[in-house]
Design a protein around this nucleic acid. Structure first.
Lengths: 201, 201
DNA sequence: TTTGGAGGGATAGATTTCCTGAGTCTCCGT
DNA sequence: ACGGAGACTCAGGAAATCTATCCCTCCAAA
């Protein structure tokens, strides 16, 4: 019962590219460069011995094989996500407790994150703190701060908030345990932060 | 429509290890060292935040989460294999040319593999040879030998054929290019060999 | 016809991930 | 006590992957 399988990275690249019919869009969805997507798709096609895309002079088109493959691969990714969330509720289903430092609060909307919106599905509540130890204790799941650090083995993501024209401006940081950096909740929070934080001063 | 996915390598390591309840067996199935399997499984557990195995003093046991995860992951690999075979006939549908050494013929049924049966779907024909070079030239797809080796970067699978009570008995080997070791054809041939080869003398 | 933007393809080099190989440990059977 | 089996760790090297460029084609606007 062994399996002969293409690489997962290559499949992800294919799936995103096929869904968007664009390497560029797929790349930004996956957080890599278009060249990487192009390479992965090419590798997949080589390993299968079948072309999945027709490269037209202007844009992409799925071949018959690609058209057949796409829905199956999408479904497999969904199944995998479901299976994974089923056993890792700690990570995938849990609502986050946030820690926010006072200075960060100042550049966020008045009662963020307690607004109606997508964030409600991912955030339980928020407390005001600057204490990184609370992260290590699991008393909070992530910490939102202005500047600070370093944070050792903790993951740190800098929130995008427009053109930084002021050299002295302090970056807005999202800090969490490494295992949580890429999870659904963190992504939602980061997205919301990017949309709602005041631009760099 | 993005997905949060564990690494495929880690999932394969988990699936093989869970199915065999042994890192060592899983490692030989995957063609890597036990250390690699151990590391991949550990990585997967870390990324999920859940233990999948109980490491007992003597041997492995699946945790509840592992027990839940295993059948779903196995099914996903099957689905992926099916989806891939459906669009890549060049690789997956081809019938193999076998090379068989005379000594190996002696322990196989008189006109193996030219019998009616499942093998017909996977085998084009067979020639008598011991020449490994034919494998490298792609003139044959796999070679069945008694003993011999080493074969460098070629994949070697030892055929199971009952209790080996005789220390001097020579193992029956299936040799092919690494990329073909896990394909449907190889699996069918190995299964048939295991069923039809004379037991160890 | 020229020009500029968008998007895909290729390549080299850097980075990350992965695997190996050796050594260690515990448990078990003799 | 001893040796074998199997899992773990860690350092180092191999392999896969990504980035950063540069090139090319096509299209649309001037």
């Amino acid at each position: 019962m062994t399996y002969r399988l293409p690489s997962l990275n290559a499949l992800r690249a294919f799936e995103a590219a096929a869904r968007n019919l664009s390497f560029k869009t797929a790349a930004s969805e996956l957080g890599v460069t278009p060249g990487a997507v192009s390479q992965q798709v090419k590798k997949l096609e080589a390993s299968l011995g079948v072309a999945l895309f027709s490269r037209l002079p202007h844009g992409l088109l799925l071949t018959v094989e690609g058209e057949t493959y796409l829905p199956k691969i999408s479904k497999i990714f969904e199944d995998l996500t479901d299976a994974t969330e089923a056993i890792a509720p700690e990570i995938n289903g849990k609502k986050f407790k946030l820690g926010i430092c006072p200075k960060a609060m100042a550049i966020l909307p008045p009662n963020w994150p307690n607004q109606l919106g997508k964030l409600k599905a991912h955030v339980r509540d928020a407390i005001q703190t600057t204490d990184v130890e609370l992260l290590r204790n699991n008393e909070i799941d992530c910490l939102i701060r202005l500047g600070g650090g370093p944070y050792g083995e903790l993951s740190l993501v800098t929130v995008e908030r427009g053109e930084d024209t002021n050299e002295a401006s302090v970056p807005l940081h999202f800090i969490c345990k490494p295992g949580l950096a890429d999870c659904r909740q963190s992504r939602a929070i980061l997205e919301d932060l990017a949309a709602n934080a005041a631009p760099c001063s």
